[in-house]
């Protein structure tokens, strides 16, 4: 099934980015997770009709892509998919909010379009930040960071197990789906067949979980999970976190776009 395999390849590609070895990759994951959270919260704290003040925030994902040596085209492609739900909901804004807020020459821009543009901009920034975070930190890194910030151990272990077996089980699922397709002569999957196909997959998953548990017991598992924690939150991390956070807060209250625009047009805000 092309779509499953495609999604998996895409997933693996993003996952592999985290194996890079740049200064950004080497930072303690906590610094990157926290900076990203500050970033996202600052971005969404802007008013509904604000578009231009959001633009300078692009510097964060852009800088991370550059410093983390991530493939630019790939990241742009991922961001371009955006979040369909946000766009679907956002596209109603121009319909319901038709008051003209901005007049550029003879072109009147309604509040609806303005807020829609703002939603698109927010999507680009927040989606970009999430992708970049995974690209420079890796999923286990993000888990480790969250755990050390206070996420319960049980949940961290849950995330790691899930992550480990995604590849194994999606492979299994796509093999079953392929086998069904080959014998169904172009017929679509009916819910009943789906039920037994997925039921089979579920049973096999359950058996696998039993085997994994045996493998854990065989190596002395007693319910306590030990993982390596050799990261260190040092000066570089503090600088990274404080530096970016300060910038975000400055950009929050100082419309840089407006200022630069004023400098060139001579219009004060």
């Amino acid at each position: 099934m092309a779509s499953i395999d495609g999604a998996l390849l895409d997933f693996k590609r993003l996952d592999r980015l985290a194996t890079g070895d740049t200064a950004i990759h080497r930072l303690d994951p906590r610094a990157k997770v926290l900076a990203t959270l500050v970033f996202v919260v600052t971005v969404v704290s802007f008013g509904k009709y604000e578009v231009t003040p959001l633009v300078p925030f692009l510097i964060f994902p852009v800088a991370m892509v550059a410093l983390g040596n991530l493939p630019v085209a790939y990241v742009i492609k991922k961001i371009a998919l955006l979040c369909p739900f946000a766009l679907v909901v956002g596209i109603f804004n121009p319909i319901f909010d038709r008051e003209v807020l901005v007049q550029i020459g003879s072109l009147g821009i309604t509040g609806g379009w303005l807020s829609f543009a703002s939603i698109v901009m927010r999507s680009i920034l927040t989606v970009g930040a999430a992708i970049v975070l995974v690209g420079v930190t890796g999923f286990p890194g993000v888990c480790l960071a969250l755990e050390r910030i206070g996420m319960p151990r049980v949940f961290a272990v849950q995330l790691l197990f899930l992550y480990r077996y995604i590849f194994v089980l999606t492979d299994e699922g796509s093999r079953m789906e392929r086998a069904r397709k080959l014998r169904s002569l172009g017929k679509k999957m009916e819910p009943g067949i789906f039920g037994s196909l997925v039921g089979h997959l579920l049973l096999r998953t359950w058996q696998r979980a039993e085997r994994i548990h045996m493998a854990m017991l065989a190596r002395g598992f007693t319910g306590e999970f030990h993982t390596r924690r050799d990261t260190r939150f040092g000066g570089r991390e503090l600088l990274f976190l404080l530096g970016w956070s300060t910038l975000f807060i400055i950009l929050r209250f100082l419309n840089l776009s407006q200022l630069v625009g004023s400098l060139v047009t001579g219009i004060s805000p």
Binding site: R164, Y165, A215, R228
Partner: peptide, 27 residues
């Protein structure tokens, strides 16, 4: 008794090879 399972995917459940090999000794 060290038991090696038929499907290594059942036995290797940690994020990295190092973590997996360290799992037993840590326990």
């Amino acid at each position: 008794v060290g038991m090696v399972f038929q499907d290594p995917d059942d036995q290797l459940f940690m994020p990295t090879v190092y973590d997996d090999v360290a799992f037993g000794p840590l326990n």
